[in-house]
Nucleic acid binder design. Structure first.
Length: 396
DNA sequence: TATCCACAGGAAGTCGTGGCCA
DNA sequence: TGGCCACGACTTCCTGTGGATA
């Protein structure tokens, strides 16, 4: 057995592709950000009052996934902090990961070295603690709330309102907010008071085109990969695939990194276009597998019901899915959920891209959804059967 | 043109679990 | 230890939708 481990380690240890693999990871902020000069300039202009220890305006940043919103924001704040560290501090919170008002406040307090329990306190108490803490620290605190739309859709904009009003309760300190969102229409859904306060300044990040993505990849490849580990045609392919995917730089870098890992695993000294193709399939498979294996039990059962139903026809209605689901639940001897809940589960599966659910009006025959699979049946089955013993035993 | 169908989906509430604090 | 709170999963109740049909 240890022979296998030694063999694998010796192959990977001799890696000929990467010089610094971590430079291709999404959280790495490079020293230069090509094609984002205008946005950097605009943010610096808005945050310039920090140089005089004055509170800058709140900012709202829009743009699709992978357009550099987070990287540019972190880049500007990092560089301003190098120059004016005595004037302000900044705290970054990803509100998709910390997706409740409680977790956001807890994250901010933890960044300020204040220990917070995982649960058990009211959000009002956390807010009180935050105000107390802020009154002890630096005069100005910049709070970056990334992917803020996801949290607000779930829990409302109350926490944003409280943040925008917090300055009234602070004696020495002041808060400025930077909200980052993928949803251009998100701000329209906010309470007018929050909207006017949070959106003092707005910046839009347009998607990258294929040429711009190519420049970004070339710059990053130069830093992260060994010389001659990659050719221009491979970079072009990564850029083209990511450009097709609404100009997503994160996707382009992921493709390059995973293609490099595949090439390295195979003992090659150069990444080829076929490695990129393999990387594309692997990234998609991993994403889907992770989503599927962490689904709640009834969501998995609904998916199995869809798989069974789609053996006889190309699409199913919500009612047909629910019927098939009830039969399965009955067969397994588990209590079923209501149709209302199944409707929500179908929406959730649609949102994460596992199924396609199109609302259709069939006149006298009512309004429903036409449901079909968006990923291969094999991947779904594998992930569900491997992650749930009850379903596995029923299936086998 | 009114009616009908098969849901969609919003709002408010319940339940169980896990955890804090006085 | 009891009261309180967060949170996810779920239920109940309700109104809205829009094209086919009588």
């Amino acid at each position: 057995m240890s022979d296998i481990i030694d063999e694998v380690l010796s192959t990977l240890g001799r890696g000929k592709i990467f010089r610094a693999r971590e430079l291709l990871l999404p959280d790495y902020v490079p020293e230069t950000l090509p094609h984002r000069e205008n946005q950097i300039r605009k943010i610096v202009e808005i945050l310039a009052p920090l140089a005089r220890s004055e509170k800058p305006s709140n900012i709202f940043i829009y743009g699709l996934t992978g357009t550099g919103k987070t990287a540019v924001t972190k880049f500007v704040l990092k560089n301003l902090y190098k120059r004016f560290s005595s004037n302000f501090i900044y705290i970054y919170v990803n509100t998709r990961q910390s997706d409740t008002p409680y977790r956001i406040l807890a994250d901010i307090l933890e960044s300020l070295n204040s220990k917070v329990p995982f649960t058990g306190l009211s959000t009002a108490e956390l807010f009180r603690r935050l105000i107390r803490k802020l009154n002890e620290v630096n005069p100005i605190v910049i709070i970056v709330l990334d992917e803020i739309d996801a949290m607000v859709k779930k829990h409302g904009d109350d926490i944003l309102y409280r943040f925008t009003r917090a300055n009234n309760e602070l004696n020495k300190s002041k808060i400025s907010l930077i909200g980052i969102t993928n949803d251009v229409k998100f701000v329209e859904t906010l309470d007018p008071r929050v909207k006017s306060s949070l959106g003092e300044e707005e910046i839009v990040f347009p998607p990258y085109n294929a040429e711009e993505l190519e420049d970004i990849l070339k710059q990053r490849a130069k830093l992260a990969l060994n010389e001659n580990a990659i050719k221009d045609d491979v970079i072009k392919l990564c850029a083209a695939l990511a450009a097709r995917d609404h100009g997503d730089a994160r996707r382009a870098l992921d493709l390059l990194r995973v293609a490099g890992e595949i090439a390295e695993r195979e003992g090659k000294d150069q990444i080829t276009t076929s490695d990129v193709e393999k990387a594309r399939v692997e990234i998609e498979r991993d994403r889907v597998y992770e989503i599927l294996s962490t689904l709640p039990f009834h969501s998995k059962l609904v998916l199995i019901a869809i798989l069974k139903g789609l053996r006889d026809k190309s699409t199913l209605t919500t009612g047909e899915v629910y019927e098939a689901y009830l039969k399965l639940a009955n067969k397994m001897g588990v209590e079923s959920v209501t149709q209302r809940r199944v409707s929500d589960i179908l929406n959730e599966l649609d949102m994460v891209g596992i199924i396609t659910a199109k609302v259709v009006n069939r006149g006298r025959y009512g309004k429903t959804k036409e449901i079909s699979l968006a990923v291969s049946e094999d991947i779904i089955l594998k992930a569900i059967v491997e992650s749930d013993e009850r379903i596995a035993s029923m299936w086998n």
